[in-house]
Design a protein around this nucleic acid. Structure first.
Lengths: 201, 201
DNA sequence: ACGGCGCCATGACACCTGTCACGGGCAGGT
DNA sequence: ACCTGCCCGTGACAGGTGTCATGGCGCCGT
């Protein structure tokens, strides 16, 4: 019997996945949480063996939760199950110690198989996404550039960004200009969009 | 036995919802589609009585699919089940003839109830979202302003937008300026973000 | 020790944007 | 007929933005 924990901020999806997986005779859903910062405690209390983690969650990201699991409960395996197949996410997930990466538009049948493989110690990675991730390569952005771009995501003017980052306006413009060049964009809004869709933020 | 159709572009969520609803003894999932433009045909072939529609789908939007259902199969009831609780979506869903509106972070237990109520001819609307929708009021944007803002969503410069809309640059700037004023933003990127998160695009 | 790279900053310049004033054309309502 | 509101366009202006050159600081690898 494989004991699994579900982490997804959408209660409906969480409950539906539980119903789906409970149909399998060798899988048992032993815990459900809606926040990333509840994963470790719930996994420990319930004695989970595999954790299905969504990425976009309040509290902690699924990626951060995977990293926390690796240090706190190393024997528990993390399987990222997310809506967005952003190429950069795959690398960051593996770096965080995740054992698998599946997108939400894979057939429902395959989810149970992925859980079993991860439980058996194998790595499971969506093949299309793996190829895309290799094609796109790692993020060309430096840490600061990514930070600034993240602050520019909502379309704030440079002055606001500079204030939030405690930097000079000129410096912000330089970082943005560099990021625009690296992403092949012509505007900081476009650069932010590109970087975000690649999972670089 | 209530015969329902599931429309969601994420196969995993679709399958999971099917598993969840099949647990109910009085509900039967008779069709599943992953695109908006397959809803009407599949509903007719399978003899569905209630259609669960996601909004973000390839082909046709869930809102557009609901409108198509109303004209083609008036006896079939549409229940919008979406990730994003954008206030403007509620109004547009009702205008499109939808019988209900539920967000994906409602408890799983309530979904079956919502289906039963819709099947019985009642309207089901998430109460928080209904309040928010009334607070926010209808979209203040004119049709063109919304179009232009939609083209500005990806951060393209004015010249590109003008080209895509077959308009003068000056006109585009005027529409954008007006939209910025109405949304309370200071940048077109921010205005686009606000309008998008309110479901005005 | 030296060069390379990232980070922060300044200043200057061309260009893009947001705003305003103004005008014409076209519907819908009184 | 009149007014109102939306759509499209022009022109001009202040301010924001993207780019470049330049410089100083710290860190790392050889």
């Amino acid at each position: 019997m494989i004991r699994i924990l579900l982490a997804d901020d959408q209660a409906l999806v969480r409950g539906a996945l539980a119903a789906l997986l409970d149909l399998e005779t060798d899988i048992e859903v032993v815990a459900q949480v809606g926040r990333g910062d509840e994963v470790v405690a719930a996994a420990r209390d319930a004695g989970a063996e595999v954790c299905l983690l969504d990425i976009e969650m309040p509290g902690l990201t699924g990626l951060e939760a995977a990293a926390a699991l690796r240090t706190e409960l190393p024997e528990v395996r993390a399987l990222i199950v997310t809506t967005f197949g952003r190429p950069g996410y795959v690398r960051r997930a593996l770096d965080a110690g995740a054992a698998g990466f599946v997108v939400k538009d894979t057939p429902a049948k395959q989810l149970a198989d992925a859980v079993r493989r991860v439980h058996a110690g194998l790595r499971v990675i969506d093949p299309d996404l793996a190829a895309e991730s290799l094609m796109a390569g790692p993020s060309p952005l430096t840490v600061r550039e990514a930070e600034i771009l993240a602050l520019a995501l909502d379309g704030s003017p440079v002055a606001t960004i500079a204030g939030r980052a405690h930097l000079s306006e000129g410096t912000v413009r330089n970082h943005l200009s560099s990021a625009i060049g690296k992403t092949g964009a012509t505007t900081r809004a476009e650069a932010a969009r590109v970087a975000h869709s690649n999972g670089w933020l």
